[in-house]
Nucleic acid binder design. Structure first.
Lengths: 231, 231
DNA sequence: ACCTGAACACCGTTCAAGT
DNA sequence: ACCTGAACACCGTTCAAGT
């Protein structure tokens, strides 16, 4: 499992004088596509080599390991994040609205790459794009009046929440539309006497959409941040 | 990656008439110990067979796959959770205090099993013990006056937060004491002009302990829940 | 200098063959 | 009936040998 500190300002590989750099990016891009298509689980250096019409030994001349490759694959997620723009004629947003919009956009990016989510574990994204997103978001909050110490803590809490939510909802292995039925069966088979509240809550939770559930939890955090800001 | 719905009320294996059941539990216990010792990454059916002085083929007569085995290994985490007891002569807790105590206890359990954390991805713990913990916690909140719909959403948000926090802090691959230095180096190498807020926040964040950081984020959520409860 | 076939040391899982 | 050695179909990674 790769750690965040493993990422380095200058990407690796014996980058000669420009050409190898290009190969490195071609490899990362192809690897990202492959993970999207077949999942992090099924991703194989042999498959990647095949798709690039080369050999695995050649891949290892540009990246030092599969782990390192995955660090850069994850960073491409953050390249897709587009900071929620303040719309033209609209009134200036509060930090609260800006934070919510950022979280929703981050969630949207993650939901589009379910197969990549397992790679986010124990890997705070600190690749070039990951850092840029954090800096942009901190700036959005601070410029709207939220003090930096609180903004930094809010960013951490929100990032944890969004990633955790996405992992359990979108990641391969999470219940899809068909598996939801199996889950229903599972709950119905539970002894209602033993888990009355769990069952009652499950019945209630199915009445709200997943998006709403995401927003409700998010607002818990944002309201708490607001309280910290006032006190 | 195993899904939660995959867990079943009745554990698997051709459980004959009592004896095989015992074997099943011996296997799960040994597997859990092995994961704790060498990590989920290094865990191997061959290693487990060796430790139990049997063969892999025999293991497969009691569990249907490595994935299923891991589902039950994870559930053992929840068997360790001891619901924070209301102390003897003390005044009755609020739901707020109860929720915080539960989250802290859950975090404590997770922090003691860093090697098991990667197994929690895309696996909402729905094994027997996992369900019991949820039911107990919901009961603790509801009995202290928090309405069930809010309690259920709070439980989900808190669980996501605690697991996300633990994954990024305790999971193998997270920066230990030595790697923290490497991380410092990494940040120092960043262009301060490009990431001024990230750098300023990092300097500030190092002044609070990890436990405090955990509690601060947690209180964001709990304060938000309180606000939802009042409105 | 750059590339690669083939190997090395592993996996999870299965099955024919033993007791 | 219960167990298992040995195999099957893979991995990530390396290296001698080619161009």
């Amino acid at each position: 499992m790769p750690g965040w500190w493993a990422a380095r300002p200058a990407p690796p590989g014996r980058q000669g004088r420009g050409r190898p750099r290009r190969s490195f990016e071609r490899i990362i891009a192809a690897a990202a596509d492959l993970v999207d298509e077949i999942g992090a689980e099924g991703f194989t250096m042999r498959l990647l080599a095949e798709r690039l019409e080369t050999s695995t030994a050649t891949l290892y001349r540009h990246v030092s390991s599969k782990q390192e490759l995955m660090v850069y694959v994850v960073d491409r997620l953050f390249a897709e994040y587009s900071p929620p723009g303040r719309a033209e004629g609209e009134p200036p947003q509060s930090w609260h609205e800006a934070a919510e919009a950022a979280a929703v956009e981050f969630n949207r990016v993650l939901s589009r790459h379910p197969n990549m989510l397992p790679l986010l574990i124990s890997q705070v994204p600190v690749g070039p794009h990951g850092l840029q997103v954090r800096e942009q978001t901190l700036d959005a909050l601070v410029s709207r009046g939220l003090p930096l110490p609180i903004a930094a803590r809010a960013y951490t809490a929100i990032a944890h929440y969004v990633i955790g939510f996405a992992l359990q909802l979108y990641a391969p292995g999470a219940p899809g539309s068909e598996e939801a039925a199996a889950l229903g069966d599972y709950y119905r088979r539970l002894d209602p006497g033993a888990f009355p509240l769990t069952l009652a809550a499950a019945a209630d939770l199915t009445t709200v959409s997943i998006d709403d559930e995401f927003l409700e939890g998010l607002r818990f955090i944002l309201d708490g941040v607001g309280q910290a800001n006032r006190s």
